[in-house]
């Protein structure tokens, strides 16, 4: 019941969404499984990005449902980069088997059950989903927390007025840019309009580092 009404409302609010959802379904069935790499050398997976780009049809890259946004994105997180909570109900016996989560979240597309386009995981090679992602079953805290974290990265920060913005977050477990930044399940504010260019890191430089840099000294 809920889903039906919800989607009717959405259909009224966003004309053309139903057409898009039909398209989404086609895409899900039409695409081949992505090749899977290990976790080793996590930051050298240009191949993965390339293949993901290749496997995603042009029309999908430019589709936009507009129904996911940064506020709902961050509401599921404890700090920028934390694994998001599961925002929907999961079966109590949900096993986290690939067939459960990845059947929707590996490839995206329209979910009639939720009346929404499904966000795509940037790391489909990790199949033990509940290792990091938990549902919310109770809102009251055990005791209050004094937890604080930093502001999420600001958008559109370029070093020069016309230069491409830097990548403001770590690429660990998020090497596949197109998962979050393109398609109808993408976050509205960070969706890119030129997803078909594929090689994101040709222009966008990660501005996050892990190791301490050595002091530069010319000998």
């Amino acid at each position: 019941m809920m889903e039906k009404k919800g989607s009717e409302k959405w259909a009224k609010a966003v004309p053309g969404l139903l057409a898009l959802s039909f398209l989404g379904l086609l895409l899900v069935t039409g695409r081949e499984a992505r090749s899977v790499e290990g976790l080793d050398n996590f930051d050298h997976q240009g191949k993965k990005l390339y293949e993901a780009g290749e496997a995603t049809p042009e029309i999908y890259l430019s589709a936009d449902s507009g129904d996911r946004n940064l506020a709902s994105f961050y509401e599921l997180r404890q700090y920028p980069g934390s694994p998001p909570r599961i925002p929907h109900k999961v079966d109590l016996s949900f096993s986290g088997n690939e067939t459960d989560c990845l059947s929707c979240h590996a490839k995206g597309g329209y979910s009639p059950e939720f009346g929404k386009f499904v966000p795509v995981t940037p790391h489909p090679e990790n199949s033990l989903c509940y290792q990091c992602h938990v549902p919310l079953t109770e809102e009251k805290p055990f005791v209050a927390s004094d937890w604080q974290s930093i502001e999420p990265p600001r958008l559109g920060r370029s070093f020069l007025s016309s230069s491409p913005p830097t990548v403001p977050h770590s690429l660990q477990l998020r090497e596949n840019c197109i998962a979050c930044h393109t398609g109808p399940g993408a976050v509205a504010e960070i969706r890119v309009a030129h997803a078909s260019r594929g090689n994101c890191r040709q222009c966008h430089v990660p501005a996050v580092q892990t190791d301490e840099l050595r002091e530069f000294q010319r000998k």
Partner: peptide, 22 residues
């Protein structure tokens, strides 16, 4: 969600976060 999407259209670069900030 739809209010925030509307806000995003009116104020580009607007940001929200669920946690208290340092």
């Amino acid at each position: 969600g739809s209010a925030i999407a509307a806000a995003g259209a009116i104020f580009p670069g607007i940001s929200f976060g669920a946690w208290p900030k340092v």
